[in-house]
Design a binder for these strands. Structure first.
Lengths: 210, 210
DNA sequence: TAGATTGTTAATCGATTAACAATC
DNA sequence: TAGATTGTTAATCGATTAACAATC
């Protein structure tokens, strides 16, 4: 069904396809051609067909692609048909914001616990959870079938916690700390470096100045 | 000093160089070679030299690169020597988290105002600011020399607000809404699609499963 | 001067686009 | 069947890596 190694750049386009197909679904569209989709998404039709073909033939010659079918298939490729249990480590502003963000649940991502190391925060209520002490992380992960850890803490803490997560054999880490984590290849790390993103914006703003 | 058009992929590596050079500075290191830096950053020395050379010669043969000088130069390229005034539009969990995040100020990004359209939120205190009504955005941007707008609101709202921002001739938009904004090329949009990022993580977790 | 390391050119690799035969 | 549009191969483009002459 799926090529051995899909390139990073193809993977990174899948969520965007998924979003557009969701919109098309909502519009009630039944079928779409790569040409039509290319106009909407502002990419070439060639790229769309190449991308989809990495995963097998989703379309039909002379017809195009069935919107509902394609939406479901891309969802499956992205693993959105599976349930994911998360813990948030770091109950500061960002950690709390993510804990309260309901939309992830729609896609099967459930926040099961939230942790912090600060005495003043431990025990406080976030959404329907009490913030737990970070020392409890390892046992919590084992007992609650957690596969994703979200790191929303300062970089020193993140590096330490990453070691614990490696021992727990977590599946993936969603890393918001401004540090590159050193973990084995078996654990996938997806970085969200907000300050990097803001710097890129800053560069672009000044790029064409004199 | 700078090539006409630096490719996206080079730009996206600059903040990471900047971060590593900051660490080296903190360690008190005075000079570093591309070979040494390549080991630390896990990229090729060739790439490092190519990247830096897009912006002119920062190094010295036989010596390497001066850490402080290189740090400052990359900072300047990223526009971090300039002051940026931001408004946050959408005072929900994420908007408030970003408003409270102090580290951006270190780099010259100052949050000057925060806005929302919900009656229940307008007037409440976030950090040292009162949340203002979104209807005031246009005049506030003009009066306060704002160059960046941070969009932390649902996609319908983001699309509407983007039109207002275009009229205000804002320099850049940091977009957290799950929608691709339609703005002229003169306004640069940097997207942070958190759900896309989480989906990529999900894909990677399941990639090697059977 | 000799050693080290850059800046830069050339070679390789991979990703995108174009083209078109296959086929619904 | 004729028209449309995919799946796929070939051509192009761009990015990465290797190599080495320039030079500090």
């Amino acid at each position: 069904m799926q090529d051995k190694n899909i390139s990073q750049v193809v993977i990174s386009r899948l969520p965007r396809y998924f979003r557009y197909l969701g919109d098309l679904k909502d519009e009630g569209l039944e079928r779409i051609s790569s040409g039509e989709l290319s106009k909407r998404m502002n990419v070439t039709a060639s790229q769309i067909r190449q991308d989809f073909n990495h995963f097998g033939g989703f379309g039909q010659q002379g017809y195009g692609y069935n919107v509902n079918y394609l939406y479901d298939e891309i969802g499956k490729i992205l693993g959105l048909d599976k349930r994911h249990n998360l813990v948030i480590i770091g109950a500061g502003n960002l950690g709390q914001a993510l804990a309260n963000y309901m939309n992830f649940e729609k896609r099967g991502f459930f926040v099961k616990g939230i942790f912090d190391c600060k005495e003043s925060i431990i025990g406080t209520q976030v959404r329907d959870m009490k913030v737990k002490d970070t020392s409890e992380i390892a046992s919590f992960i084992k007992d609650n079938n957690i596969d994703i850890a979200v790191l929303t803490l300062p970089k020193q803490g993140a590096t330490e916690i990453a070691k614990v997560l490696v021992e727990c054999n977590i599946s993936g880490i969603w890393n918001f700390a401004h540090v590159d984590l050193d973990v084995p290849d078996s654990i996938y790390v997806e970085n969200v470096h907000l300050s990097d993103s803001l710097m890129k914006l800053s560069f672009k703003i000044h790029e064409n100045e004199e």
